[in-house]
Computed example of a mutant assay.
Amino acid sequence: MYRLAQETKDDWWEVEALYDLCFAPGREALSSYRLRDGVDPIAELSMTARDADDILAGAIRYWPVRVGTHQALLLGPIAVHPTRQGEGLGGALISDSLKLAQKLGWTRALLVGDAPYYSKFGFNVTTDIKMPPPTNPSRVLALEIKRGAWRGIQGQVEHF
């Protein structure tokens, strides 16, 4: 059993260590990190998952971005400790945080990731939204938290 909670400032370095473990320290060289430079993650949506012994098992963060004049959520990174993978924890973090995002009034989200995994949460490949290069366009995925939220929106994802 895991306890999902909002990430606190005291969690920051432990979460960063989990991300380094799961993605390697070079993860910050990825182009999606340029959208995060100098911007705080959205506190209400950045969550941790801890086990009964209070050991960090997973984490997810969201960042504000925009496409033209339209706000969106950038999901990621999300990580589950290698010893805890396959237990559904990543899915719980995604599902719970997206439900909360909807309650908070967010209407659209995007990420860079594997379509086969994220499609079960409603994300689809989009050719209308462009992430900073050198992002592979087939890995840019969008989700309408509110039906029709991406309709007619296209262009470059930019810093908020």
Rank of each mutant, 00 (worst) to 15 (best):
K130Y: 03
F121R: 04
H70T: 14
Y19D: 09
E44L: 06
Q102S: 14
M47A: 12
P82T: 08
E44C: 02
K103L: 10
S97V: 10
A49D: 06
L100Y: 00
D114N: 14
G76I: 08
L56D: 08
I42L: 15
I78M: 13
S119Y: 01
Y117M: 07
Y118G: 11
L45T: 11
V39R: 01
K130C: 09
I60Q: 11
I55W: 00
Q71S: 14
G88Y: 08
L35D: 02
P82Q: 05
Y33Q: 06
V112H: 09
R66T: 13
F123T: 11
P25V: 12
R61G: 04
I129N: 08
L93Q: 10
T69C: 02
L104Q: 13
P132L: 06
R61K: 13
L73R: 08
H81V: 05
P64T: 09
L21V: 03
Y62C: 05
W12N: 04
L100D: 04
A24F: 07
G88C: 05
R34S: 15
L89V: 13
A57S: 12
A59K: 04
V67H: 00
L45H: 11
K99V: 11
Q102P: 00
I78G: 06
P133E: 13
G86R: 07
S46V: 06
L100H: 12
A72M: 09
F23C: 06
R108C: 10
A101P: 10
V65W: 01
Y33N: 06
R27N: 08
H81C: 05
G86E: 10
D37M: 03
T83G: 04
A72R: 04
L45C: 10
R27H: 15
Q71R: 14
R66I: 05
G90H: 10
G88R: 06
T69N: 13
V125F: 00
R84E: 14
F23M: 06
C22S: 09
T48A: 07
P82E: 10
A43G: 04
P64R: 14
L111P: 04
E28F: 04
T135F: 01
A79E: 08
R61I: 02
R84T: 00
Y117N: 09
L100A: 13
S31H: 03
P132W: 03
I55L: 07
R50A: 08
P77I: 03
D96Q: 14
L111V: 12
S97P: 09
I94C: 10
S31F: 01
A52N: 04
Y19M: 05
L104A: 07
T126A: 13
R36A: 12
I94H: 06
K103H: 11
A17M: 07
I42R: 07
L110E: 11
G105R: 05
R36F: 00
G86I: 09
Y19F: 15
K120C: 04
I94A: 09
S32W: 00
V65N: 03
S32K: 01
V39N: 02
L93F: 12
Y118L: 09
C22N: 07
E28P: 00
E16D: 13
A79C: 12
A109W: 09
V39I: 14
K120E: 08
P25W: 00
A115G: 02
V65A: 13
R61H: 05
D54L: 07
Y117E: 07
I94R: 01
R66Y: 01
T83N: 13
I60F: 08
L18V: 11
V125S: 11
A109P: 09
L35Y: 00
D20L: 02
A57I: 00
L100K: 15
L98N: 12
L35P: 01
